[in-house]
């Protein structure tokens, strides 16, 4: 499978955020997007996830049964997508049932709810309401969601914010597993994520003006 992004441009309120971003990602590859605050990392990820319908450019996934990148992706944004009123296992159980599709039903690596909670090292909290957890625990439960259904592409927006060191290692291992199994991971971050091999995309604001009609330079370099 191959993910192709061609000439992505985003303009909001008549001002161009970034333009002309192109990259391609094959199975087993990771892309780390970095850059200063406000440069459009989250926006780029939302474009890839198909959540910004008025963005320019094309994002396609070649060689899979999926009709769009969105269908083939897990998206972990700034919010965790969990209800504080429901227990951890109720939340995960819902997402597992809601996100099931053919590929997910056949994939043997999909974990049950209790196994997914165990995989992020939080066995003891499954019966608690999600709202009772700490910020780091919430983030880890949100990561457990990624394992309750199979998606070849993971789109992660600052996944390790609020995580302690041990959890960051745990997260790096999860990503490594996903890549070894032929998945793709796209992550925006300010912290080194500890991926062994990854492409780096550094977004920089224009030198003169933050939002200009000039292209802010995008510099993909192999790392």
């Amino acid at each position: 499978m191959r993910l192709l992004a061609e000439n992505i441009s985003v303009a909001r309120g008549g001002q161009i955020f970034f333009s002309g971003i192109s990259f391609s990602l094959s199975s087993g590859e990771a892309l780390v997007v970095s850059g200063p605050n406000g440069v459009g990392k989250s926006t780029l990820l939302r474009v890839l996830a198909g959540l910004l319908p008025d963005a320019q450019g094309a994002v396609t996934l070649e060689g899979g049964p999926y009709e769009s990148v969105a269908e083939a992706s897990h998206y972990l944004g700034h919010h965790n997508g969990m209800k504080p009123e429901l227990t951890v296992s109720e939340n995960l159980d819902f997402w597992q049932k809601f996100m099931i599709n053919e590929a997910s039903a056949q994939d043997h690596r999909v974990l049950g709810v209790s196994d997914a909670v165990a995989a992020v090292g939080l066995e003891g909290v499954a019966h608690l309401p999600f709202g009772y957890l700490s910020a780091g625990q919430k983030r880890r439960i949100a990561m457990a969601r990624l394992m309750t259904a199979f998606r070849p592409v993971w789109i992660l927006d600052e996944p390790t914010a609020a995580l302690d060191l041990a959890s960051r290692h745990m997260f790096a291992d999860l990503v490594e597993d996903q890549l070894e199994a032929g998945g793709m991971v796209i992550a925006a971050t300010h912290q080194p994520l500890g991926f062994e091999k990854a492409q780096n995309l550094v977004l920089m604001p224009d030198e003169d003006a933050r939002f200009s009609h000039e292209d802010p330079f995008a510099d993909p370099e192999a790392g």
Binding site: G50, A70, S73, G77, N80, G81, M82
Partner: peptide, 17 residues
Amino acid sequence: QHDREDGSLDIMLMQET
């Protein structure tokens, strides 16, 4: 509104359903 605030809506919009 609640689904939008906690990010659930994004995930729902992305599904095959």
